[in-house]
């Protein structure tokens, strides 16, 4: 990307110009995301602290912020391969989520493009897939643990099954949304079906795929955690269950914070990739509004 990358200009241009010369209050309102947004967690933290120290909530129900911070610091201070630390288990959960996400996303996308490209296949397979879609897929977790044991594989497959559908649906919707003009243009240049898929359909469907991937990336961590709940030797989900059974609530909170960070990281990665691969989609919305 060059310095005059359209991404850099995209979001900035859309923001309304603000008058920063006014009263401090107006300044606060104009920069809401830098002033009020950080205030919100601080208020919540204060309320939490108050609940523990002033109203004496028992530690096994609501540990104090300091206790949670201690648990977090203790967990993160351990070596990466130390099974008593957070790094080790976080690594395993991330590994399972990522493998499952990649597997589910790739299979879902490919099948989505296939179904959308061959109407006959669509008519045969889609009803079956819809029926399967209606099933709450986490309910399959116990079965998969029986089939694949306590190792990683069962979790990877659960995650794959859960993340498969968002991509399947978005690949199909993306393909159906391609303007017929674009296909005509390609056909008038004697494009072969695979060329049309590669140069027209897949790029056109990209915004849909990223919408699906965004949903799937959140579901991926969920899949791995549920798998670990059912039965595992390692992973943050297993850690949660262990701490929970021991009524060690402070470390439970620490694990939840790590899980939140992982989810945030996944979402952020998808957003960055989207800005890179779909830079044109955001801008097209602007031009459409300006043009018509």
């Amino acid at each position: 990307m060059s310095a005059c990358s359209p991404i850099a200009g995209g979001s900035g241009a859309s923001r309304a110009p603000v008058d920063s010369g006014g009263s401090p209050l107006r300044w606060v309102r104009a920069h809401m995301q830098w002033t009020l947004t950080p205030l919100l967690p601080l208020v919540m933290l204060a309320a939490w602290s108050l609940a523990c120290h002033q109203f004496g909530a028992p530690a096994y129900i609501l540990p104090s912020p300091e206790a949670v911070l201690d648990a977090l610091r203790d967990g993160l201070a351990r070596a990466p391969m130390d099974q008593g630390g957070l790094w080790f288990h976080a690594g395993i959960t991330i590994y399972e989520s990522l493998c499952g996400l990649v597997l589910g996303a790739v299979v879902g996308t490919l099948l989505g493009f296939a179904l959308a490209s061959f109407p006959a296949l669509d008519r045969v397979a889609y009803p079956v897939l819809v029926a399967f879609q209606a099933l709450p897929k986490v309910a399959l977790a116990p079965l998969l643990i029986i089939w694949f044991g306590l190792g990683y594989n069962g979790k990877i497959y659960i995650t794959a099954i859960i993340t498969f559908f968002p991509l399947l649906v978005s690949a199909m919707a993306g393909t159906h949304s391609v303007e017929s003009d674009r296909i005509d243009l390609a056909r008038s240049c004697n494009a072969r079906p695979m060329q049309i898929l590669r140069k027209i359909i897949i790029p056109s469907a990209m915004p849909y795929l990223f919408a699906g991937l965004n949903v799937a990336s959140s579901l991926a961590v969920l899949g791995a955690i549920v798998g670990e709940f059912v039965g595992a030797r390692a992973g943050l989900g297993m850690l949660l269950i262990q701490y929970n059974q021991a009524m060690q609530t402070a470390p439970v909170f620490a694990v939840l914070i790590v899980l939140g960070l992982i989810g945030f990281l996944f979402n952020y990665a998808v957003k960055v990739a989207e800005q890179h691969y779909c830079f044109w989609a955001q801008r097209r919305r602007h031009t459409l509004r300006a043009g018509s």
């Binding site: 303007e179 674009r182 243009l185 027209i200 790029p203 044109w280």
Partner: peptide
Amino acid sequence: AVVFQAPILLPW
């Protein structure tokens, strides 16, 4: 070769 009613330029 055809010039269509809309320009049909690929935005990417």
